[in-house]
Design a protein around this nucleic acid. Structure first.
Lengths: 336, 336
DNA sequence: CTGAAAGCGCTTACAG
DNA sequence: CTGAAAGCGCTTACAG
């Protein structure tokens, strides 16, 4: 109802042009040598009318929306929820707001989200890329739209990214298990061509080889589109097929949770029947009767770095930043 | 680099006016009786040039941004993360995208977020209101900006809202505990003037009175801005002050989690030393050694209803919708 | 059936 | 020191 106040309203009331009002309100009155009285008057009227600039008009004119598009796998997943929170706060420090979407690890959904956000002229993207979206990322780069990948990235294309030292993390976790005396160590991961997953599996494999345990390697790769039930069935294979797995390393937060459900359902005791190392960490890990040993990611730093790199790109830098952050192995009671 | 394609580009290539292109691309060629050939040609060229409408320009012109502003307490909190996910999906069904912000239960932050999003001309707001923000909500209403509150609302002002039957939920949980034989039942809640909290406490009180247990009422109210440590200390009072509380009802997801940490730290066993009823539910509740009995909120329905009501408002309805949804008491092993 | 033109609310190069 | 004017990319009432 109450119409928004525009520059024109102020200009009319003060009796000057909108140009002058614009200069003053954007703090360029010095540079433009606007008369002191006029400046004062404009400021007064603006505040009196409670003027709020119309961002949409500004955006159309300047080409910048001060908005970041964030695409994660699923905002309901606490790992991404936490990341979103860090990104929100950091973006806000730079004067940016965040619009988000969940891709569900689906490349079609991802494409749709990217298109939608491009039409809304976001200044740049922060993307947790799904499998098969490498061309979408390339296309953004071709169109010179700033983009930073986080958590994962592609080998085939040179992009900005911020990721964990995935190889090192699972290598560390695996050799930790080996040092504690475990031999029949299995891993549960997603079947995926995405680097973060490949590296996590590779880290496990390398550690096993290093300790001459190739013969004991057992990796269960589940698909993103599997039901919880099927995932639990797959996990069960590791512990229930007569090969007596002694310890399991899980490759993500969600897989760890699924694994714990499975372990509980089958009345296995951690760590007596089976040792567990989780990934990412959350409250369920802490409250589990045997608080989990897990690989912690520096979510806060990861989110902050991602925003920093993106803002850098938006401001015109053409330096490519590829940042790998260190993990921490939190050692607790889920391994003997 | 590669310049965006505009209506004008298409118009020039086809040799018609931008008006015609606009009509055709917005599917109004029938109404405007545009020649069949021209329609075909315009469609062809648009697709060939991969035309994407500039939403910002559309928005400036039409006054609609097809964007919803979502303000929650904290997107990293799984309850709000899940809610955000439902809202995102439902909004997308209506062709809307979501921009979000976390208020941290802080009214200043909330005011800032609302201003920012207003300047970005969101078409409407979905807000989990923080304490002391009633004037912010009123101001939105005064300016005829569509808004729907969710999870909480204010008594003093008639707004759209979607909320749980908070009174009924904690009344139910409390009487369930009483029926199971518990008498010394405590409650942990936030100190807040917000209705959802008041009602949850009231439901507990009423149930206690109903069963002549006024004498056993013990409510611990913690503040939003307390550290985790202080919250745990407060909770500890309930079980450790010689009055031997037998069961605790927690008023939110986060409080339940804090409570479980506290219980574990003090080596109390659930349900033998202390019975527990939680709120909202999450994976930690399921994986706890005594899977929690808890009050489940219909998050999915809640989110969907909220979006539906908001879209309704955006489309011009001036009917106020105040929707209360039923809880479910999930009964498991955290009570005898 | 089609087009010229105005206007959404800004910013900014240009002229004086 | 100040203002008129163009233009960002659309939509739409109006005229023909």
């Amino acid at each position: 109802m109450s119409k928004r106040i525009s520059l024109k309203d102020i200009a009319e009331k003060v009796g000057v042009s909108t140009a002058l009002v614009s200069y003053v309100l954007s703090g360029r009155e010095k540079e433009k040598r606007v008369g002191a009285e006029v400046v004062k008057k404009i400021r007064e009227v603006a505040r009196e009318l409670n003027y709020q600039p119309n961002q949409i008009a500004q955006s159309l004119r300047t080409g910048y929306t001060k908005t970041i598009g964030l695409i994660v796998a699923d905002i309901a997943n606490p790992f991404f929820g936490n990341m979103a929170r860090v990104i929100e706060d950091e973006a806000s420090n730079y004067g940016y707001t965040v619009v988000f979407g969940s891709s569900d690890e689906d490349s079609d959904k991802s494409a749709l989200l990217i298109d939608t956000l491009i039409n809304r002229l976001v200044d740049g993207f922060i993307i947790v890329p799904a499998e098969g979206t490498v061309n979408q990322i390339k296309s953004l780069q071709d169109r010179r739209i700033p983009v930073v990948l986080v958590d994962r990235y592609f080998d085939e294309v040179r992009t900005n990214y911020v990721a964990l030292d995935n190889f090192g993390a699972s290598y560390h976790a695996t050799s930790y298990l080996i040092e504690r005396g475990y031999r029949k160590i299995g891993m549960v991961a997603y079947k995926s061509s995405l680097i973060h997953m490949k590296e996590r599996i590779k880290g496990y494999m390398e550690a096993m080889k290093e300790f001459k345990l190739e013969g004991e390697i057992r990796v269960e790769e589940v698909r993103y589109d599997m039901t919880k039930n099927d995932i639990e069935k797959a996990i069960l294979k590791l512990v229930d097929n007569g090969n007596n797995t002694e310890a399991i390393l899980f490759a993500t937060n969600a897989l760890t949770i699924s694994g714990l459900y499975c372990i509980n359902k089958n009345n296995l005791k951690v760590p007596d029947n089976i040792a567990v190392v989780g990934f990412d960490g959350n409250e369920a890990f802490d409250l589990f009767y045997a608080p989990l040993t897990y690989i912690e990611q520096p979510i806060s730093e990861m989110g902050k770095e991602t925003v920093r790199v993106l803002i850098d790109q938006i401001q015109g830098s053409n330096k490519i930043s590829q940042i790998t952050l260190p993990h921490t192995l939190i050692k607790r009671q889920s391994c003997l």
